[in-house]
Structure formats: structure tokens, C-alpha cells
């Protein structure tokens, strides 16, 4: 073999080792990572200590209301103004974070876990498991989402954050499961998965190390968007009188109350929507950044 051809394969100029690039060093340098992280830290503080934050302007109790200032705009001490009952919007938005975020995250987590489990089963095994899972998701996807949730919630009777999350998760997982299934199917026959199976690795190892890490990306992206959708869905249910009930406080409740007053008191709709939008933005951006960071080809 002559020299020219040999070096075509091994380029001597970059024979050295590259600096080790983990997930963290890559993340640390990106501004787009820190923005959503800051947002989520703020939201966590709101969830853990709403009373403290709500009290910053002197009117921290969301249930102290004065009907005489119904739907008034922002004044000193009440930066976000008042709602129809004359309650402080700022205190309500801050106190509503916990319920809204909990419903959004709980529901998405339950749906995600269910979707990954059943979707992987269907995508990997095929055959009977695939047919059963696919038909079940068909049935759920055939239901009108809200109608289904209404029926389920009515039969629950009790309305807690958990029951609302469960009812919503029941109708969120099928779409995700389908995504997991098709994603897993596309990776299942990849040569590196076949190589792993040919080397005699156990099914668990093949799935957890080779199939899922390469299949989960699109599902994670959808899951982060789902959190926002669920928070909105919860507000819709609440608007119909089926979600959380007063005296529970959630963004959904506030949004549904504010809709009727949009023209004469837009601030009632504006502030809860801004919080909702920022939350969804943070989660989606974080999801995007994490997905890129976890994929070595993007680093």
C-alpha cells in the first residue's frame, strides 16, 4: 500500500484527543439554557412560597376582596388591579401557580410514562401488542377530548388537583403513545440495535441504552408543549364548571372569569395569560435546549 492511500483514512493532523465534552459544559455556555432555568426557578418559588411573594405589595391574601373595587385597574398596592369580585389579581396569580403547574406537570408525567411504556411495547414487539395498543389509542383519539374529560370528571365526583390531572392524562397519552411507537419502530431496525442484539445483550439493555435514547427526542419535545396545553385544558374545564372549583385558585379559573370582562377590564385576562405564556415558553425552550444538549451530533 502506498503512503497516499493510507493517510486518506487516518488524517495525521487531528490525531490528538478532543477535549471531553459532556452535557453540562455544553449547556453552561448557552444563554438559551439560563433564560428558561431562571423562569422555572421563579415559578418554583411561587409554587413553594406563594404567600411570601404575594405579600410584597401589602395585599397578599387572595381571598380578601372588596366588591367596591370590582374590575378596577392597577393602583398602588395592587399592581395587577382587581378582578370582578374585587380580589387582588396579583395575589391570585401568584397563588394560582401551584395548582396550574401541578396539574400541568402531573398530567404530563403520567401521560408520558404511560405513553413510553405502551408505545415502546407496541413499537418493539409489534404483532398482537402493537395491534391492541394501536386500537386502544384509536378509541381514545376518537373521543372528543373535552367530552371525554367531562364524562370522566363527572363520574369521579371529587375534584382535586390529582383527579383533574388523571382525567386529562387519560386523553393526552394516546397521541404521545403513537409518537413513541412510530419513533421506536424507526429505531428498532437500525443497524446499531441489531448489532446490540447480535452481541447477545439483554432486552432491557437494548431498549434502555440503544432504542429509547435515540427514539425519545420527538416525544420529549411534544411533552414540553403538552404541559402548556394541559394548563389551558384545565382552564377550559374550569370554565365549564368541571375543573377545580372555587375556592381553589388556578390560572384557569382566573382566565375563565376574565373572559366575559375582556373589553372593560383587559388586565384581568392579561396577567394570568402572561404567566401562562411565560411558563409554557420556559418549558418548551428548556425542552429544546436539553434535547440538543443530549444529542452528541448537535454539540
Amino acid at each position: 500500500m502506498t503512503g497516499v492511500a493510507v493517510t486518506a483514512d487516518l488524517d495525521p493532523t487531528d490525531a490528538g484527543a478532543l477535549p471531553r465534552r459532556g452535557v453540562w459544559p455544553g449547556l453552561r455556555r448557552r444563554a438559551l439554557f439560563w433564560v428558561p432555568v431562571a423562569g422555572i426557578v421563579v415559578l418554583t418559588v411561587l409554587t413553594v412560597a406563594p404567600g411570601w411573594v404575594a405579600g410584597w405589595f401589602g395585599n397578599g391574601d387572595p381571598r380578601v376582596c372588596d366588591l367596591s373595587s370590582s374590575a378596577d385597574g392597577p393602583v398602588a398596592g395592587h399592581p395587577f388591579g382587581f378582578d370582578r369580585q374585587g380580589c387582588d389579581v396579583y395575589a391570585n396569580v401568584v397563588h394560582g401557580t401551584r395548582a396550574s403547574l401541578t396539574v400541568g406537570l402531573t398530567c404530563t408525567l403520567i401521560a408520558f410514562a404511560l405513553a413510553v411504556l405502551l408505545g415502546t411495547l407496541a413499537g418493539l414487539r409489534g404483532g398482537l401488542a402493537d395491534r391492541v395498543v394501536s386500537r386502544v389509542t384509536d378509541v381514545f383519539l376518537g373521543f372528543p377530548f373535552l367530552l371525554g374529560a367531562i364524562v370522566v370528571l363527572n363520574s369521579f365526583g371529587e375534584r382535586s388537583v390529582l383527579s383533574v390531572s388523571l382525567a386529562l392524562a387519560l386523553f393526552v397519552w394516546p397521541a404521545m403513545a403513537r409518537l413513541v411507537r412510530s419513533s421506536v419502530r424507526s429505531v428498532r431496525d437500525a443497524e446499531f440495535v441489531q448489532a446490540a442484539r447480535a452481541m447477545g445483550f439483554g432486552t432491557w439493555r437494548v431498549v434502555s441504552r440503544h432504542v429509547l435514547p435515540n427514539a425519545i427526542g420527538p416525544v420529549l419535545a411534544i411533552a414540553t408543549i403538552t404541559v402548556g396545553q394541559v394548563i389551558v385544558a384545565e382552564s377550559t374545564l374550569t370554565f365549564l364548571g368541571l375543573g377545580l372549583r372555587s375556592p381553589a385558585i388556578s390560572w384557569g379559573l382566573q382566565l375563565s372569569n376574565a373572559q366575559a370582562q375582556l373589553q372593560n377590564a383587559p388586565h384581568m385576562l392579561l396577567f394570568p395569560s402572561v404567566f401562562l405564556a411565560v411558563t409554557v415558553f420556559c418549558l418548551i425552550t428548556l425542552g429544546d435546549v436539553l434535547r440538543d444538549a443530549l444529542d452528541p451530533r448537535q454539540r
Partner: peptide, 10 residues
């Protein structure tokens, strides 16, 4: 055959 496909990219 295809060394790109037979190594786990992650």
C-alpha cells in the same frame, strides 16, 4: 455494512 448506522450515535 454501514458504519454510520451500526454505531449508536449517542
Amino acid at each position: 455494512q454501514n458504519p454510520m448506522a451500526s454505531l449508536n450515535p449517542r
